[in-house]
């Protein structure tokens, strides 16, 4: 009985934690942006404006869920589900604490990369199905951006895999007991952060939804809870990328005194704030800059990183 119940509880807990943190992130982002721009942000609804999340969700539920008559209805309906599903599926492999993860896949890292690549379908399909110029442009940009940034996102992690000798995220965390990989794999960390920003299409790389150019890009035509799913999907993506940065480069649950799970979420919180700080600071890149930055700098850099890491590992042997 327990053997069935325990995985179910873990799944429920993981889902609960991720969805709560994604919705709390909406509030956190607004408050932090406000803090860095010398304003207050939402501070009226409930203590510190925390109930703003509930107010927004309620509002979203009661909005008209409109499908434009010119849209491809089936695809239009499926697209927002894909982004949430892929994001939530990747949560399965995140090791929150020793003995607390949904599955202990021995190819956990590859599964995460695969799921984050699947996310591009959502954006591309949404842009296509909306049958709208701006949406299509957003979808086009998104697919080009995500495909090119995914290449060195995977490559930047190979250094970590080489050092840990495993694709299993649990093993990777355990390999960092004495030295976090952010030290030997600093270049990998920087590349992964940049690629992660691009994968979640966050602000310096938010070309797919560039408000000032494309209305809202791929989700221009979406309303109500379908838009809500894109929204939650984006914040889930941020949480996920932060969780992966922590797992792969900052020793996952390791840390003194406090229990492992607390350490994990503390570190994730710091990186979420980092994402928000980048949003508060950086302007959007131009599209050609984005592409040339990816292919001309990041890809060679990640290859060099692999080369050097491999050489050092070989030399040490």
């Amino acid at each position: 009985m327990m053997s069935i119940l325990w995985p179910l509880i873990t799944i429920a807990l993981a889902l609960g934690i991720m969805l709560t943190s994604a919705s709390a992130l909406v509030w956190l982002e607004r408050r932090m942006l406000a803090l860095w721009q010398d304003r207050y942000g939402p501070n009226r609804v409930g203590p510190f404006g925390l109930l703003q999340v509930i107010a927004d969700t309620l509002k979203m539920f009661f909005k008209e869920d409109w499908i434009p008559p010119f849209a491809d209805k089936t695809v239009f309906f499926i697209a927002p589900m894909v982004i949430m599903t892929t994001a939530l599926l990747s949560v399965a492999v995140v090791p929150f604490a020793p003995g607390f993860s949904v599955v202990d896949l021995n190819i956990g890292l590859l599964f995460f990369l695969a799921m984050s690549s699947m996310g591009v379908y959502s954006v591309a399909l949404a842009g296509w199905a909306s049958n709208n110029k701006y949406s299509l442009l957003g979808g086009l940009r998104a697919s080009a951006q995500m495909i090119s940034y995914e290449v060195f996102m995977g490559l930047s992690l190979m250094g970590v895999v080489m050092l840990a000798g495993s694709f299993n995220l649990r093993d990777i965390v355990e390999a960092q007991e004495h030295l976090w990989f952010c030290v030997p794999q600093f270049i990998g960390l920087v590349i992964f952060c940049i690629a992660g920003l691009a994968e979640t299409h966050r602000i310096p790389f938010d070309l797919p939804e560039a408000e000032s150019e494309l209305v809202a890009g791929f989700h221009s035509e979406y309303s109500g809870m379908k838009f809500g799913m894109f929204f939650v999907g984006e914040y889930l993506g941020i949480t996920l990328i932060s969780a992966m940065i922590v797992t792969l480069f900052f020793g996952g649950w390791y840390g003194p005194i406090l229990p492992p799970i607390i350490w994990f979420f503390l570190k994730v919180f710091v990186f979420q704030c980092g994402f928000i700080l980048l949003r508060a600071t950086l302007p959007r890149l131009r599209y050609d800059q984005l592409m040339s930055f990816g292919w001309k700098y990041m890809l060679p850099l990640s290859l060099i990183n692999i080369l050097i890491t491999g050489a050092i590992i070989l030399a040490k042997r």
């Binding site: 406000a34 803090l35 860095w36 721009q37 010398d38 700080l277």
Partner: peptide
């Protein structure tokens, strides 16, 4: 320049807020 601007924005966390409630 990018790192400096990130730092400058971060330091705004310790500035007085402009909003009059």
């Amino acid at each position: 320049s990018i790192l400096r601007s990130i730092g400058l924005v971060f330091m705004h966390a310790f500035h007085k807020r402009e909003t009059v409630q």
